[in-house]
Amino acid sequence: MDEIRALDSEVLAISVDSPEQSRKLAAKKRLSFSLLSDPEAQVIELFGLRHPGANPMGEADIARPATFILDREGHIVWKIIPDNWRIRIRPQTLIDQLGLIE
């Protein structure tokens, strides 16, 4: 995370979890970035990332995993939409990509 901030970059992570759930997760994993709560999956919908029927708890559909890198003007300059929820993007890949942006 320090390496990412050193590149004048920030991280926002979005899920349908409530702020309360996110607070616990952030405390447990000692996360220093923002975990944003999208309980109705409205932003998830805006990004086209709804995974219909995948929420065992009912309520809103959860997001399929995806990661975007935005430049300083909010343009999406890089994205990854994995086909598997088990395999995760490596932080170093993101750091390398951030380094490529002015």
């Binding site: 997760l25 944003l36 995974h51 959860i62 975007f68 935005l70 909010g74």
Partner: peptide
């Protein structure tokens, strides 16, 4: 409240995860 537009001028990683951990 976190507003995406507040991050103009910074590079940003926006990541979506499944939740319920």
């Amino acid at each position: 409240e976190v507003d995406l537009s507040d991050f103009r001028g910074k590079k940003l990683i926006v990541t979506f995860y499944r939740g319920h951990w």
